[in-house]
Design a protein around this nucleic acid. Sequence first.
DNA 1: TCTGGGGTCCTAGGACCC
DNA 2: TCTGGGGTCCTAGGACCC
Length: 391
Amino acid sequence: MNAFFASIEEQINPFLKGKPVVVCGNPKGRTAVASASYEARRYGVEAGMSLHEVFRRCPQVYLVSGDLEKYLDISKRIFAKLYEYTPLVEIYSIDEAFLDITFTHHLFKGAVNIAHRIKSWMAKEYKLTCSIGIGPTKMIAKLASSLKKPDGLVILRAKDIPKLFKKLPVKSLWGIGEKTAQYLYRLGIHTCEELGSYPVEALISRFGKMGRVLKEMGLGLWDAPLASSFKEQVVKSMGHSHTLDFDTDDLESIKRVIFYLSEEVAKRLRKEGYSGRTVCLTLRYSDFFTFGRHLTTNFYMNQGYDIYKVALLILEKIPLSQKIRMVGVSVSNLLRDFSQTPLFPKENKRIRASEVVDYINQKYGEFTIMPATLLPLPRKKKMGKLKELKL
DNA sequence: TCTGGGGTCCTAGGACCC
DNA sequence: TCTGGGGTCCTAGGACCC
């Protein structure tokens, strides 16, 4: 999808159409660009950019606080449509999917026709545009889709690769990021063609297992299997993180944020029927040094308070050497549907209570009922309002 | 108004077990 | 009389992606 979040916001609020629009987190806090309209991109605004930089480049920008649930809803409806063309659909992210049409393209008069049908349906139903790439492998199709934005349709055949790779920078390949690119530059490799002709042994000795993949990528041959969403995709971890409005070393404030995040994670675990037994606490210092510490327990959790307690055990063992900028809590080692069979009758009451709280908050809005710990403190000046924590 | 938030995969080392 | 080999689980850290 092209500028997915920003385009949705333009549909909802036509006033924004044709204007430089940026979707971000809470604009009052420290946040960054999640999605920028093409109008905003003309000013050099990019995803991941700080608001400070956005204003510097485009003072007249319109900011919209993003709503992931809303985008997810539209995303799901769009993806559901794709199954009309093949059961082999890999949902790669909120706005990107792969379709394996090897066995079905003949039913729709070919790949190009399928692409046109998807694009015109999307334009008609949602007034959204996307860029579609057609190729013999996922890697090539993904590359093709990136060659024309917005509203592109690019076909790459195996025979087109040698010519394209002659000049194409390695960085434009899916899977080669900043670090790998820097290593490759040091080896004198800048283009895909150079990568493809580099001795595979040398790549393996430098990059390990990845070396063989890099070689194949350079030749345009790398063929990653399609992770079909037909067999349900397994979630490996769930987490939330939050960058504080200002850096702090006040333990009580940090604990409150950890508690809030634990509650949020637990809510999602329960909603999707998961429990997990490993908690990871992530911290980011003022100087941006970021690290995580895990603790695995012998019991599965989907209650905020349980996750919070484990996170605190982790916190106690970390000597805080600087002020904290960001806090994250995630749960992994997930198991499906454990919550249906609570082990101890005593726990039943609390689980039942959580269910009721979830229900009320879903019906009447977030934090209609919340733990007293999360109520604003009298000395709230320093903490900011809690509502604002929620992006 | 310096650098968001949500994920996955891979590697490497240590503990522990047989 | 100088310490094998195979395996699993856990933790930490790095890289990448949207």
